[in-house]
Computed example of a mutant assay.
Amino acid sequence: MVKKIEKILGIISAILLVILALIVTLQIFARVLTISVPWSEELARQALICLTFIGGALAYYRGGELKITLLIDLFPPALRKWNDLIISILSIAITIVVVFSGIKFLGDIWGSPTVALQLNKGIFFITIPTSFLLILIKLYKNIIGVVKPKEL
């Protein structure tokens, strides 16, 4: 399941990156030709927001989360295991707060249209709780990996 989620996140991130590159390219050509494309800046911003959260979840799935392991590398394996468990539990707590805050935020902005595109803002910001829910799945999997003894 984790590999499937990682693959889907990768595909979505690639699509968003292509959309963002195309929109920015369009903006550049439009400015050179002194043509106004009022929706392009807003769509680029919304694509970047989505890419940030989906890409962040993808980075977490690929092990790209920020870690400072200078001291932890000196710990004996048993202590490292406890450290990983505590960090995963704290990360779950923080992630749950972000998920619920993201859901509350969605409730506040849902139905509110974007300025130029006149699309529901919630469509773009739904990536906040969604990406953190996906991170929560990976954190749960990490805890299971730490707690469950490896078979010989």
Rank of each mutant, 00 (worst) to 15 (best):
S40W: 07
S40I: 08
E41I: 06
E42V: 08
E42H: 07
E42C: 07
R45D: 02
R45P: 00
A47R: 01
L48W: 14
L48F: 15
I49F: 10
C50T: 07
L51V: 06
F53A: 00
G55D: 03
G55T: 03
G56L: 05
G56M: 05
A57F: 10
A59K: 12
Y60C: 08
Y60K: 06
Y61Q: 08
L66W: 14
T69K: 12
T69A: 13
L70G: 01
L70D: 01
L71S: 08
I72A: 15
I72H: 05
I72G: 00
D73N: 15
D73L: 06
L74C: 00
L74D: 01
L74K: 11
F75T: 00
P76R: 10
P76W: 02
P76K: 13
P76D: 11
P77V: 01
L79N: 02
R80T: 09
R80Y: 05
K81P: 01
W82R: 14
L85K: 10
I86W: 09
I87G: 01
I89F: 11
I89R: 03
S91W: 03
S91G: 15
I92Q: 04
A93T: 12
I96A: 10
V97Y: 14
V98W: 05
V99D: 10
F100Y: 06
F100S: 00
F100E: 02
S101M: 15
S101L: 15
G102L: 00
K104H: 02
L106W: 12
G107F: 09
G107M: 09
D108F: 12
I109S: 04
W110T: 15
S112V: 14
P113E: 05
T114M: 06
A116N: 14
A116H: 07
L117I: 10
L117F: 03
